[in-house]
């Protein structure tokens, strides 16, 4: 009985944890994407309902492999990424895509300003302001990445010629 109570408690705790929900959302998304690909490739599903049904089947198959080492390591990696500060994630993404020079000249100063404003807000215990700063700088970061992309360079070039 006590075992049952603890397992029910454990189950409820698991259901309450954001980790489980994030995992479920990620796997549902993967399932839907896969089913859509199959639908497009083979045209086997004519209605959305059957596609959803197969995506749920796919999910249950994935769940069978939940205990495997690979799934666990992927899960842990996803969890680590979720727990990272937003500026670290952005910095890692830009570091992966752009050259060291671009990273040093363009993205590192943005992260430095981001940290400056973010930690100042946290120091003053203004949690909502800190969250707003995260949103604002994520947008700024995306804009900078767009401008530093080849398309951004092309737009800049065309603008220069036009002016």
């Amino acid at each position: 009985m006590s075992n049952n109570i603890s397992s029910v408690k454990e189950l409820l705790e698991n259901l309450m944890s954001p980790r489980v929900w994030i995992r479920v959302i990620i796997f549902i998304s993967i399932g839907i994407v896969f089913v859509n690909i199959f639908t497009q490739l083979f045209g086997i599903f004519t209605s959305t309902n059957s596609a959803m049904g197969v995506s749920l089947l796919f999910l249950s198959i994935i769940n069978l492999f939940f205990s495997s080492r690979i799934i666990r390591s992927i899960d842990l990696m996803i969890w680590e990424i979720i727990n990272m500060p937003t500026f670290t994630i952005c910095s890692k993404v830009s570091n992966f895509i752009y050259s060291n020079k671009t990273q040093k000249d363009t993205f590192e100063p943005i992260v430095a300003d981001w940290q400056e404003e973010y930690f100042e807000a946290l120091f003053k215990n203004e949690i909502w302001k800190a969250r707003w700063i995260n949103v604002r700088y994520t947008y700024a970061f995306v804009v900078a990445m767009w401008q530093k992309s080849p398309i951004g360079d092309l737009i800049e070039f065309v603008r220069k010629i036009a002016s």
């Binding site: 000249d105 363009t106 100063p109 943005i110 700024a140 804009v143 900078a144 401008q147």
Partner: peptide
């Protein structure tokens, strides 16, 4: 703007 300043400066 925060998003464009460092691109311009670099």
């Amino acid at each position: 703007k925060r998003g464009t300043i460092y691109v311009t400066l670099s």
